[in-house]
Write a protein that binds this DNA or RNA. Structure first.
Lengths: 145, 145
DNA sequence: GATAGGGAGTTAACTAGTTGACAATAGCAA
DNA sequence: TTGCTATTGTCAACTAGTTAACTCCCTATC
């Protein structure tokens, strides 16, 4: 009993965190959390449809359907890769880039304020624990039948 | 920068945990994780459409659409509340109950095995940390504008 | 050069959510 | 009683995912 409840607690935790972020983005930027994630994934540089899908942990088809929405709003540019006829490269426009920086900053700030009464060393230790568990889970994919 | 990454790590962690659970359920019980959650929520006793929605953190409409699928498979029963003409009560059939117990047990077992090399006191401390953070987030809803 | 394969993207049909509008019932107050 | 107001569930239209089937285009090999 005690075991599985960790996963329930984790699920509740991320759900609360994400809807918190979503609420801030909707209220201040008229934007959803998932739109934010789409743009953030492009921050490090242009990606193909498939590459962005991998980064968002979503199929290429899902990206292909959503991309035009962002292009229409001039947040991203879609241009075909000169080195590969079929491949499309998605990149942030300067408008998109500005939006990402601003929203990312706002969320960071909100997070910091929310946890201002936690010692930063505690948070760091917590993050380290999370990473330890995550890394443990990534090893030995283990085909369960 | 360091701050927001905690939330990214958390999101990755639950996504890995949940797809792990999903894979086990699909392979061994031909069932998805979200179907499992639907049934598990009814384990403590019958719930109305709205009540189940609250428990799953989903709207009443979503429950209303999915419920017939489970009824057709004789996993739940839908009967109107004798004390309230409009209200519908959803409850597990014995088939549903058996399935829930079996799958919950399987997932618990898989979790235990997966973390067999973690000291259980470490896991307990980790869970306590999670709860501490979660409780912190639940306080002061704080209307952000 | 022809062609077989693989990689990349799109589309269709599906599932699972959402919101908003609605219908039906419950419950209270006058 | 009668009549507001709440609660409850359903429906329609939408968003965001999935898988499977398809189309292009590139590359290697014969």
């Amino acid at each position: 009993m005690e075991e599985a409840k960790i996963t329930f607690t984790l699920n509740r935790l991320v759900s609360v965190l994400n809807s918190h972020a979503d609420a801030i983005l909707r209220a201040r930027y008229d934007m959803t959390f998932s739109q934010f994630l789409f743009l953030v994934a492009l921050r490090p540089g242009p990606l193909s449809m498939t590459g962005l899908g991998a980064s968002l942990d979503v199929t290429t088809a899902a990206v292909s359907k959503r991309a035009p929405w962002f292009e229409e709003r001039k947040l991203i540019r879609i241009h075909s890769d000169p080195r590969h006829g079929r491949k499309q490269l998605l990149s942030l426009t300067s408008k998109g880039q500005r939006l990402v920086e601003e929203t990312a900053e706002a969320l960071d700030q909100a997070f910091i304020e929310r946890f201002s009464d936690f010692k930063s060393s505690d948070l760091a230790a917590f993050h380290a624990d999370l990473n330890r568990v995550l890394e443990h889970l990534m090893t030995i994919p283990k085909v369960t039948t």
